Amino acid sequence: MQTVQLGDTRIHYALTGPEDGTPVVFANSLGTDFRLWDKILPMLPDTLRILRFDKRGHGLSDTPKGPYSMGALITDTERLMDHLGLKDTIFVGLSIGGMIAQGLAAKRLDLVRAMVLSNTAAKIGTRDMWAERIGNVEKAGLSDIVDPTMDRWFSKPFHRTEEFPAWRNMFLRTPAEGWTGCAAAISGTDFMSATSGLRLPTLAIAGSEDGSTPPDLVFETADLIPGSQKHLIRNAGHLPCVEQPEEYARVLTDFLTAQGA
């Protein structure tokens, strides 16, 4: 169990792999902890130095009083990487994790030399949409939104698997204040201008059945960065690393290898 106090928040993380390995950072989605990546890790090269972490309000990290700003989430990540001495990383961010990737790359290019933007965008949803969801959770808890969220997250066949209930439970066990705090951060974020100024190797991954960040939205963000690559994973929703881990790991490995990992 690895934790570190970063300002007002203690962050839970895992740093694995050879100390001289290529550093890769994984940042997960709203309503999940860093177990999101468990299925793909054994399929990646064993030469990687991998950092996973629970953002504030999620997993085993602290849940400070919200709402949170995207700047605070980016600063948490920046401080964690500085604490661990990680630079020139390949940053893999899914959903809100991909927003953190974009903001961190714009702020500290010394920390990010390439990035994977998975099921994410420079701007996700509208303020009114997020305000409604936040209000519902504040009144009735995450149980009020869990089923429509699962419908957006996973393809219909995955709902019938033995694994699906565990992901539903992970979402429900996220602290409500952590979820609303991070939802507020997404609501207030528009990185269209910042991301359009980035010039670094980028791979965008989308899921064909993603109801949260549809492929067109993901690829529109990729188009802001000259030379970016795009990959569509079919029969997968918002979390393709869960539904199609073999394809996800293969595409990610190809990109990592191209970056010299």
Rank of each mutant, 00 (worst) to 15 (best):
Q2H: 11
L6V: 09
I11D: 13
H12T: 11
L15W: 08
T16K: 09
G17T: 08
E19F: 01
D20C: 00
S29Q: 08
W37P: 01
K39W: 07
F53Q: 12
G57S: 04
G57H: 07
Y68E: 00
L73R: 11
R79D: 14
K87C: 03
K87S: 03
F91H: 11
I96F: 01
M99K: 04
L104G: 06
K107P: 00
N119F: 01
T120V: 09
G125R: 06
R127F: 00
M129R: 11
I134T: 02
G135F: 08
K139I: 05
L142Q: 01
L142G: 03
S143A: 10
D147I: 09
D151Q: 13
W153E: 09
K156Q: 12
E163N: 08
F164V: 03
F171H: 09
T180M: 09
G181P: 14
A183I: 01
S187W: 05
L200K: 05
T202G: 02
I205F: 04
A206P: 03
T213V: 10
P215S: 12
V218M: 08
T221A: 11
D223M: 00
L232H: 03
I233P: 04
L239N: 15
Q244R: 15
R250T: 06
R250A: 05
D254F: 00
A261M: 07
